[in-house]
Structure formats: structure tokens, C-alpha cells
Write a protein that binds this DNA or RNA. Sequence first.
DNA 1: TATCTGTTGCGTACGTCGTACGTTATAGGT
DNA 2: ACCTATAACGTACGACGTACGCAACAGATA
Lengths: 218, 218
Amino acid sequence: MARNKNEPKLALTRERILDEAVAFADVHGVDALVMRKLAEQLGAGTMSLYNHVANKDEMIEGMVDVVSGEIDHPADGDEWRSAMRASAASAHAVLVSHKWAAAEWTRRRPGPNRLRYMDAILRTLTEAGLRPEVVYHGYHAITMHIVGFTIQELGYLDMPIGVDLEDLAAGFLGGLETSNMPHLAQHVRDHAGDDDHGDEFSWLLDLILDGLERSSRA
Amino acid sequence: MARNKNEPKLALTRERILDEAVAFADVHGVDALVMRKLAEQLGAGTMSLYNHVANKDEMIEGMVDVVSGEIDHPADGDEWRSAMRASAASAHAVLVSHKWAAAEWTRRRPGPNRLRYMDAILRTLTEAGLRPEVVYHGYHAITMHIVGFTIQELGYLDMPIGVDLEDLAAGFLGGLETSNMPHLAQHVRDHAGDDDHGDEFSWLLDLILDGLERSSRA
DNA sequence: TATCTGTTGCGTACGTCGTACGTTATAGGT
DNA sequence: ACCTATAACGTACGACGTACGCAACAGATA
């Protein structure tokens, strides 16, 4: 091989593979992620990848962990709700920027970065002085909100694929009205007038955080 | 073919295919669901299935809709929170009984049964007299809770595959303690002592419902 | 320098999957 | 008795993950 001669040709590394895989999935989606194509993108043979990842599933676990590493942990000194809001907003932004990641998040084992992130959230809730059961339930509620909300939001955003949203909604709505689903039709109409999903994300997060605070004092 | 003679051999039907596919996925998981195997189970040729379903993806959409049809809608006369609690409990039970369904729920387009279910929830919130923004956000919060919580719960339950939970937790915990993640370690320990996930499901649901009620009155 | 050893890269090949396509069988209308 | 639409089926193809065996190389030992 032309090592450090005319052709530099970066050495294959687990990190380089994961980064490239994340970038590829960001553009083409995780379904289009194929080992042959990924290797080609890296200028390597397909099977060379398997020197650094055990198999495709394990590689995707690694990709999710790379994404986990981009999330800001809650800050130490702040009031617990502000700290959680900031960290949740960061997680939300990260998951939105890697649209495939939220769905994978729910089905893959956590890697080291994600474990650290989990610990940081639990630490924040614990040191806020919340009652232990509230920490326990609250952790589930918060993480569920972050990824659950994002999945729903991205699922909705996926619907208009290069189609005029108005046309799509109109056709969709026609079917709903004639099928006697007026409330759903209204909801779809509401969606059309609501472009700021970040707002809804924090509105619902606050509902949860305030509920936890209140419940812990009770 | 031996039609109505000695060999009865049920006619192939979209409904029969979907029911069999749901049953198969319930037992073996959705990843093991393969067209050839499914056809064999139905006593049919593989390609015969394609006379009744467009392709595998569309078939899975249909499977999710079959599952959607099993969920009880919120009852009409009851106080809105009781009605929602009952319906959410039904949805939770259905999704737990078809363990593959929650993950598919988030990535497939809704079919007719699910659209009707969506409409029923929106109707309940609207007729409860909640403010329109609260209906809008509340719908998202409630549906997110139902499927998000269930996904997390099932993901957790999946971990001990025929392994003694204690052993697994012990090994896992060892790694966490030595990695300086005491809060996560404590959380895992808490999980071990908590077998009633249904309780947590409704505790968190109540937190959301009460938050919506309060927010709508404000 | 010469040899040995472990690691990384790679090409080939196999088994599994979804499904396109062309053909056959059957049922219902005339 | 014929015609036509639909369901059933077998074969075959391309895409995919990856097992396997070999080649190229780096560093250690002498």
C-alpha cells in the first residue's frame, strides 16, 4: 500500500468509520446506510470495516453514542429546572440535526457517552433535592419527553417530501372531513399554522418539570 | 387446487395475512418476520401474499393498524381525565401485548383505525372544554407518553434475555460504579426493586393530565 | 540485517432477503 | 362452451451482511 508516500490515504479507524457513517446517515437516512457504500466513501474495502466494528448493529450503536456525545450535560451551579431545560434543548437540537438518531436511540443499547449523559441527568435531579421516587419517575418522564417528542416531530416533518404542504394537507383533510373526523382535521389544520416546534418542546417540558417540583413538595 | 373438497385450505385474505403476521411478530419479533416464512405459515406461496398487500412496508403499516384497532377509545360520558386514563391504560396494555408494535408505531403512517383513535382523543380533550392550545399540546403530550413510555419500558424489559436479572445487574453495576456513575448505578438498583410499571405509567400520565387541567384554567 | 508475529486491509463467495415477471389455475358472467 | 378478470405460484435477480482465507505491513527479537 502507498503509505506515507504520494497517496496519503488516511488509516481506517473506528472513529473515522463512525463519523463517516453518521455523516452519511444524516444525508441519506439510516436505511440507505450500506456497508459497501460506506467503505467506498472511506476509500476502503468493504471487509476492512470489520476490523474496527464487530458488525453493522454494533456500528449503529457506536453511531448513536457519537451523537450522544454531542449533547450538553446539565450545568452544575444552576437552578435544576434551568439546567434541565438547557440540556434538554441541546439534546433536542442534536437529535433534530441527526434525524435518524431518535428512532435508533430507542432500540439500541446505550454506549459510554449516553451512560454518562444518563448519570448527569440523574445527578441533577438528585442534587436538586427531589424525593427519590420523584427522581426515579422524573428521569423517565424527562428522557421520554426528549426523544418521544422529537420522534413525533420528525415523523410529522417527514410527511411532506418535496410536496407542497398545503396540497398535501388539503387532500388529507378532504379525506378526514368526509370520514367524519373533524377533530383530527382541525388538529392537522393547527399543525399547518405552527412552525415553531421548539416552543412546544419547552412548553411541554416545563409542564413536566413543574409537575415534578410540585409533586416533590407535596 | 383442492377448493372445498377434502382439503379446506382457507382462501388468502388481507385480513388473514395481517392477523397471521401480527401473531408471528408477537412470538418471534418483527425482525424475524420474513415473507417466505409468513407464506409458509399460511400454507401459501410467497408471492401470493402480494395479491393482498402492496409490499412488506405496507403490510407492516397494516399490522400496526390492526393493533390500533384493539385499543379502547375514551368513553363519552365520563370526566375527561378518567376517560383518558382508561383509554391510555388500554393502549398501554395493547402495546405491551404486541411488543414490536410501539417501535413501529413511531415510524409508520397511521391507518384508518389509528386515525379514528387520534380523532377520539382530540374529541375528548376538546369536549372537556380545554383551551385550544392546551388541546393541541395536550394531544401531543398524551400520545407521546403512551408510546414513549412503553418503548422505554419494553427496551428495559428486553435487556435480561434469559439471564438472571440479578447477575446482569450486578455485572452492569460493577462497571458503572468503577466508572464513577453512582447515580446511574442507583437508578439501576431502583429498577430492580420496581416491578409494577403500570403504576409508573399512570403516575406520569396523571402528572401530564393534571398539568393540562391546571394550565387550561390559568 | 534476517526472521517471526500479530494486526490491518481486501476479494471472493455464500446465504438470506424482498420482489419483478411470466405462467397457470380458477371462478363468474355470457 | 367460451371469455375474462383475478388469485396463486415458481423462478430468478439484485441487494445486502458477513465468513473466510490470503496478502501486506509494522514492530519486536536476535
